[in-house]
Design a protein around this nucleic acid. Structure first.
Length: 893
RNA sequence: GGGCGGGUAGCUCAGGUGGCUAGAGCGACAGCCUUACAAGCUGUAGGCCACAGGUUCAAGUCCUGUCCCGCCUACCA
């Protein structure tokens, strides 16, 4: 007896098959091969912790593509790895150190980095095991880390190259500064959050004049660093004040009143306080007017000595309170008006970002952005969904210099060397030997590079760049990049630019951007919101395949894809359904084994259900392939679900039961064949279950034309279309309709199971009758629990019978004792009303001469046939209702 | 302020280039332990496809406008 348990228990098989695949090296890609290449580089997960639901989706979809292409015969490379995630990792580590009562500074750079490496090992191992539990068929021999030795070389090479090209330069400029992390960050890392703040209206007295200027600000504490007041040059209210000086309250300083067109006359009071050291726009104004830059904050966000003594040492928020109090008591404060406005926060630590002037390393990405735009316009890169292309262009066209340095420790130290004697700057892979000035004493730049700089090299650095490797030759540019749309700018755009800069070629041909996983309320799942699903927990409960199926099924092209628990539950039920279908087939195969040398492929086409299920399988093969080709994973999932459950299980296997009972096991052998092919189709989505079943299905006992390799479904060939059979599909559709009508009557009229009833079928069309006769006689009793079937060209409707109409077919079920005439009347009336509605609609279309004239012939013919059928049905129903009413009246008599 | 996406059954969503009687899953209701599966089987109910115009023989689908919801982006202090 087959030792298959009644319910599917995924935990028992998942580990086993992953080990099997790895042992057989199925996931390894050869650097050179005759097969066409297909490559994906994984978006390397940050080593900041475990994988979340978004990773599960991202990697499931990648694995679907990779497994599918592998079966199609491509030399598939899925390049795995992890990312050192500079600031993020440091933020988390610093919190941890704080819990231990120590800090980054206390440890010192070297010790701190040591701790980071330790932690990296732990989280790395956890992440890899998660990916493996998810079933990811990565080429693990090639795994990389964005901070490993090879990467350091790649990063240094790229940096030096861009420096020499003049694209990377040092400059003093205002950039976003995180006072919490003590580093500069790029504007992408600034998250604007709406805050309920205030407008503080403050009086600035004009020197040697009775006039008092009123300015409005949301950040009163910055007034300590004001170096001007600006008005619009054409503003009549203030024109006469331009060139005069204003008294800066609380500071005992005088600042000039200047004219600058930036000022919006309509906004606030039309007078703007200017703080060039702490506001990006003020900084620009300051440059235009040669204003002093008076910084009043320290790098970590406290008031410094440039402010009046009483404020020194206060935090920014404390200082705001003090300033407002002091303004009020000195009668400088006019009013406070509530004002909601966006405040920039660091996306990694949440601190309020402070625009700060500092000496920084920048990369001028404009030229590369231009090349990226051109490459995209030429079709060298394609974005899916297409709407993302517009977002890409918009960002690329408005790109600004990229501050690439970070004042942190965990990351690639910038390969810049300062001469200790003359301060000359050298960019080099290693410490230079000698400076131009003759000295040989150097110090390396303290700053590290933005993590995105190194991950921007990912698609080629993982393949050995800067060396010219066979891997690069074979796999670059890679085939597709799969990622969430939220990192289009952070990462994908940078990869394209750096790929062009270093490889002179885009890094991938297609970018597939999936949605972000949301809960049932449409909210993005995230740990901080507490609505996220832990992949491992979910897998433990439902099994990987159910989870993967749910993810594939959820991945519609929407920007946020909901993943309610019920969908994962549905995945589990589906897995169980497949399991039991296999169980049924395998159990019966023991009694009816496939004889050696038996060919089940393409045979027995004369049997209706066999021809039909093959035709449906053909449709499934074509649709699944097309869906995967176009990144419509949800469609692949749905079509496989519908085929397996509603066509294969609900119908075909039920027919098979009858065949087996009649000792005709051929249908069973075909079932095994259909299931074998379907397991191949579903393998990219449900790798473990499909392998478990595929392994048990017969391949050796008969000729199998499709499976080139019989050792694993993971390397079996992808099914090819096997041809459709429209006649079989049409005949089967009618057969199904008859069966469903009889079932419906039984259900609606509450005919008890025990009641023995007969079915009389009138079928005037000889050809249809001929095609259906045997099958109806054979299957109707078993499918609908009726005692007997009569089929004739013409027959009388038996008295007190229920009726259904399918085109020309009439189905009568005599129910002399059990029929509820009122119920039957209601049932028929409802169908009649529907028929009238449909007839009217069809009639209206056909009455339109323009329709006949202009619509394609095929559509007109279809409409005519439809109307004809509907008219027959309508007429039959009308007659039956009439008869019913008549007999009811007779009963009354 | 600009731009994008969405509004279809109680809920979550499908419905590429207009053309079957608008579908699925979940949920609801009714009946079934039918020898693979109760994580199952059978049946039923439920939709002015947001609204208003327009194009067309034909609109859930294309165009215009309006109203909601979400997101991305922007220097209005």
């Amino acid at each position: 007896m087959t030792n298959l348990p009644k319910t599917y228990t995924p935990q028992k098989i998942e580990g086993k098959w992953y080990q099997f695949w790895q042992k057989n090296n199925y996931f390894h890609a050869e650097a050179t091969s005759e097969k066409p290449p297909y490559a994906i580089v994984i978006p390397p997960p940050n080593i900041t912790g475990g994988l979340h639901i978004g990773h599960a989706l991202d990697n499931t979809l990648q694995d679907c593509l990779i497994r599918w292409r592998r079966m199609q015969g491509y030399n598939t490379l899925w390049m795995p790895g992890t990312d050192h995630a500079g600031i993020m990792t440091e933020v988390i580590m610093e919190r941890r150190l704080a819990d231990e009562g120590t800090s980054r500074i206390a440890l010192g750079r070297e010790k701190f980095i040591e701790r980071m490496w330790q932690w990296k090992e732990e989280t790395h191992d956890y992440i890899i095991s998660q990916l493996q539990q998810l079933g990811c068929s990565c080429d693990w021999e090639r795994e990389r880390f964005t901070y490993d030795e090879g990467f350091c070389e790649a990063v240094n090479t790229a940096f030096v190259q861009f420096y020499e090209q003049g694209l990377i330069y040092q400059d003093t400029y205002m950039a976003n500064w995180c006072p919490e992390c003590n580093t500069v960050i790029s504007n992408l890392e600034v998250e604007p959050i709406d805050i309920d703040g205030n407008f503080y209206h403050i009086r600035y007295p004009v020197k040697e004049s009775p006039i008092v200027l009123e300015i409005a600000t949301t950040r009163p504490e910055t007034m300590l660093g004001d170096t001007a007041v600006a008005v619009h040059p054409d503003d009549e209210r203030y024109q006469h004040l331009i060139g005069k000086k204003a008294h800066l309250p609380l500071c005992d300083r005088e600042i000039p009143i200047i004219a600058d067109a930036y000022v919006d006359r309509e906004f606030g009071t039309g007078a703007l306080k200017v703080t060039p050291a702490h506001d990006t726009n003020d900084y620009e104004i300051g440059l235009r007017h040669n204003l002093e830059q008076c910084a009043v904050f320290t790098r970590d966000g406290y008031i410094n000595e440039n402010a009046p003594e009483k404020y020194v040492g206060l935090s920014r928020s404390d200082c705001r309170k003090r300033v407002v109090e002091d303004l009020q008591s000195a009668d400088y404060l006019v009013k406070i008006v509530p004002h909601r406005h966006a405040v920039g926060h660091h996306d990694r630590c949440g601190a309020v970002v402070e625009p700060t002037i500092s000496l920084q390393w920048f990369m001028n990405v404009k030229p590369l952005a231009q090349r990226a735009i051109e490459a995209t316009q030429k079709g060298e890169v394609k974005f899916i969904p297409e709407r993302e292309t517009a977002r890409f262009y918009h960002w690329m066209e408005n790109i600004e210099p990229w501050p690439v340095a970070r004042q942190r420790w965990w990351g690639h130290r910038i390969p810049i060397w300062y001469c200790n004697a003359c301060d000359a700057i050298t960019a080099a892979m290693e410490t230079p030997q000698q400076c131009e000035c003759g000295a040989s004493d150097f110090r390396q730049e303290e700053d590290v590079l933005d993590t995105w700089f190194s991950s921007g090299l990912w698609p080629f650095s993982t393949m050995g760049w800067p060396a010219e490797t066979p891997e690069l030759k074979t796999f670059y540019p890679t085939s597709v990049l799969v990622s969430g749309w939220d990192i289009l700018f952070f990462w994908i755009a940078r990869m394209i630019m750096l790929g062009l800069g270093c490889m002179d070629e885009v890094p991938f041909r297609t970018v597939y951007l999936h949605g972000l996983v949301a809960d049932e309320k449409g909210q993005k799942m995230s740990k901080s919101k507490g609505n996220s699903i832990d992949p491992l927990e979910t897998i433990a409960i439902y099994g990987v395949d159910a989870f993967r199926f749910a993810l594939a099924n959820a991945s519609t092209p929407l920007p946020y894809v909901p993943l309610p628990e019920s969908q994962i539950e549905a995945g589990r039920r589906f897995a169980n359904k497949i399991w039991n279908a296999a169980r049924f087939i395998l159990m019966n195969l023991e009694k009816h084994p496939v004889p050696a040398e038996t060919d089940t492929v393409g045979t027995h086409q004369e049997i209706l259900e066999i021809a039909w299920i093959r035709s449906r399988l053909n449709y499934t093969i074509e649709t699944t392939t097309d869906a995967l080709e176009n990144f419509r994973f949800y469609e692949a999932a749905q079509v496989l679900y519908a085929f397996l459950w509603h066509e294969f299980c609900d119908w075909y296997l039920e027919f098979t039961k009858q065949r087996i009972a009649q000792d005709e096991p051929e249908a069973l052998w075909v079932a095994a064949d259909i299931l074998e092919q379907t397991m191949r189709l579903i393998h990219p989505i449900m790798p473990f279950l499909s392998e478990e079943i595929w392994q048990q299905l017969p391949h050796g006992g008969r000729r199998n034309e499709f499976a080139v390799d019989k050792s694993s479904v993971a390397i079996a060939s992808w099914p090819e279309p096997i041809g459709e059979n429209a006649t079989a599909e049409a005949t089967m559709a009618t057969l199904m309709e008859v069966i469903e009508s009889v079932r419906s009557i039984r259900g609606e009229l509450n005919v008890p199971m025990g009641a023995s009833v007969e079915v009389h079928i009138q079928c005037p069309d000889a050809e249809i009758r001929d095609r259906l006769e045997t099958y109806l006689a054979q299957y109707l009793p078993a499918f609908t629990r009726v005692a007997g079937v009569i089929i004739a060209e013409r027959l009388q409707k038996p008295p007190a019978s229920a009726e259904a109409v399918i085109g020309e077919l009439a189905i009568y079920i005599p129910l002399a004792d059990v029929i509820d005439l009122d119920a039957e009347h209601a049932r028929l009336s409802k169908r009649y009303q529907q028929a009238v509605k449909d007839v009217t609609a069809a009639q209206k279309t056909l009455d339109n001469p323009n329709f006949i004239q202009r619509a394609p012939e095929k559509v007109v013919a279809q409409k005519r046939a439809q109307l004809e059928r509907l008219l027959v049905e309508q007429e039959k129903l009308a007659r039956s209702i009439g008869m019913l009413t008549q007999s009811a009246e007779e009963n009354d008599d």
